[in-house]
């Protein structure tokens, strides 16, 4: 599981916050990482795993969170120092010959416009809901539940990532 975002920019820290909670749960077989943003080396990291859950803050979209399946891409929007989850999977496939199944968990946030290491109250509630959803799935390795939630959700990635 990889949570990404800047915890110093209020609700942008939702991804790392979820990663911290998953890490604290110390679930066997689950490795957790977090960073400001996804980067090329994450392609190497995901290539060693069967399933990847990306967690990020969502500026808009479904509350309290949405889940979508991520498929590898050779997206042309690979245009800055950060990399999107679908491009991470594309690099994992092209460079490291690995195709893990992947999901995007986009937690709805509201405040992004200031410096500050705190979540807005509504974002904190959404984080709790995402945690309640994800932890049992990870504990049970219940890939089907993750896929079912992704299938029910709309719109799919990349619109929500």
């Amino acid at each position: 599981m990889i949570g990404f975002g800047n915890p110093g920019r209020l609700d942008d820290g939702l991804g790392p916050a979820l990663a911290a909670r998953v890490e604290a749960a110390a679930i066997p077989g689950v490795t957790v990482d977090s960073d400001y943003q996804l980067q090329v080396e994450d392609a190497e990291a995901v290539s060693h795993h069967d399933v990847v859950v990306f967690a990020d803050a969502a500026i808009s979209g479904r509350e309290p969170f949405s889940v979508s399946e991520v498929v590898p891409s050779r997206g042309l929007s690979f245009s800055s120092h950060s990399v999107d989850p679908d491009e991470i999977l594309g690099l994992a496939r092209d460079l490291f010959h690995s195709a893990p199944r992947a999901f995007m968990l986009a937690i709805r946030g509201y405040d992004f416009d200031e410096f500050g290491e705190r979540l807005s109250p509504d974002a904190a509630d959404n984080l709790a809901a995402a945690e309640q959803f994800l932890l049992p799935i990870l504990i049970r390795s219940d890939l089907a539940a993750l896929a079912e939630r992704a299938q029910a959700a709309a719109p799919p990635f990349p619109n929500s990532a």
Binding site: G5, D56, A57, A58, L76, S79, F112, N159
Partner: peptide
């Protein structure tokens, strides 16, 4: 405009 998704913080 060519760009990236605008709906999610990164």
């Amino acid at each position: 405009c060519k760009g990236v998704a605008e709906s999610v913080a990164g």
